Simulated assay, not measured.
Amino acid sequence: MSNSPIVKQYSNEYQTEVVDLILSIQQKEYNIPITKEDQPDLYTIEDFYQKGKGNFWIAVYNHKVVGTISLLDIGNNQVALRKMFVDQEFRGAKFKTAGLLLDNAIQWVKENSIKAVYLGTTPQFVAAHRFYEKNGFTSIDLKELPENFPLLQVDKKFYQYSPS
Rank of each mutant, 00 (worst) to 15 (best):
A128N: 11
V7R: 10
L142R: 15
D155R: 01
A98P: 07
N55W: 00
S139K: 13
F137I: 02
Q50R: 11
L151Q: 11
K156E: 14
V18G: 10
L119I: 06
V126R: 12
A98T: 04
E46G: 00
I45G: 05
V7T: 14
S4N: 13
F158A: 13
V109M: 04
V60F: 07
K115A: 10
F95M: 06
I6Q: 12
N62M: 07
I69K: 12
Q107K: 14
N135Q: 06
F56S: 02
I106D: 09
W108S: 09
H129T: 11
E37I: 10
K51R: 15
D155E: 15
Q107M: 04
A59Y: 10
Q160P: 00
E13N: 06
N76Y: 08
M84D: 04
S2E: 14
L142N: 11
F149V: 10
I106N: 08
Y118H: 08
Q160F: 00
N55R: 10
S139L: 12
K8H: 12
V109H: 03
T122E: 14
I58R: 10
V79Y: 00
V60H: 10
L42P: 07
G67F: 13
Y14C: 10
F131I: 01
N76S: 12
Q9P: 01
A128C: 12
F48M: 03
L42K: 04
V19N: 03
I114Y: 04
S162E: 02
A98C: 06
K110H: 03
I32A: 09
F48Y: 15
F125R: 12
D41K: 09
S70E: 05
N76P: 00
F137H: 02
E17R: 06
A59G: 14
Y159D: 01
K51D: 09
I69T: 14
Q27N: 11
T97F: 06
A116H: 07
T16L: 03
E13D: 08
D73R: 02
A105S: 14
D155I: 01
K134F: 02
L42E: 07
E133T: 12
D73C: 07
Y30P: 10
G52P: 13
N12S: 14
V7L: 11
V18Y: 11
T16C: 01
S164Q: 06
I6F: 06
D41F: 10
D20F: 01
P5D: 06
E37W: 00
W108N: 08
A80K: 09
N77L: 01
S11T: 15
V18H: 08
I25C: 09
Q78A: 05
L23Y: 01
K51E: 11
N135A: 03
A127V: 10
L21H: 08
